[in-house]
Simulated scan of single mutants.
Amino acid sequence: MNGQTREQLRAIHAYQCVRAVPPGIRADYKPRVHGLGASVLRDGLAAALTFLEREKKADERAPLETNAAMRLLSDLAKSLEKAPIPELKRRLATMSLPDAVRELKLEEYMLATRETLRLVVWFRRAVQATFKDSEQTRAQ
């Protein structure tokens, strides 16, 4: 055992992901992170991820470094791979995150939703602590 709680591991991973976001997409990444939790609560996890997926597909040729929706989906997938949800881990090995979530049974779907909401809290905190004010105001 490494002595760190799951909450600490979520925080560490979220900060690592957010620090790695290229400056060119930070203004786009921030509102997506800030809106994700509300979208999950309002519409459900599958719908919130589908919205990001649709945004990703609008500019699918763009590399990960220039597409904020694509970057956020990738960051969430990496984070959820570490979650204690075996069925989700198994599906993420061969599917995209939105597809994997849509295939989950109710119990795993609920666990994935809770885990995503916990992750979003840390992603929001990381964005607020990491992105400079000038980057934040450009998105508004």
Rank of each mutant, 00 (worst) to 15 (best):
L104H: 02
V21N: 09
L117W: 05
L88H: 06
L104C: 07
Q4N: 10
Q8P: 02
L9H: 03
L52C: 02
R71Y: 15
A77I: 04
P23W: 11
E115S: 04
K132C: 04
A58W: 02
A62N: 06
S134T: 12
G37F: 01
K78D: 12
M70A: 13
A46T: 14
Y29K: 04
E55T: 05
R91S: 13
M95A: 11
T113S: 15
L36C: 04
G35S: 05
L73C: 01
E103I: 01
L106P: 02
N67C: 09
I85V: 15
E55N: 11
V120H: 01
Y15P: 02
V21P: 06
I12F: 12
A58R: 14
L41T: 13
I85R: 05
E103C: 07
E65Q: 14
T94W: 09
A77C: 07
A77M: 07
M70G: 04
S39I: 00
A68G: 03
Q140G: 08
I85C: 08
T130R: 02
V127D: 02
E7I: 10
R32Q: 14
S79N: 05
P86H: 05
L64I: 06
A20G: 14
D28M: 06
L36Q: 01
R118T: 07
L49R: 02
K89E: 04
A58V: 08
P23Q: 08
E135P: 03
A112W: 02
F131D: 00
D99N: 08
F123D: 00
M70P: 00
D133F: 07
P84C: 05
A126V: 04
Q128S: 13
P98D: 06
A20R: 14
E107R: 12
A100H: 14
P22Q: 11
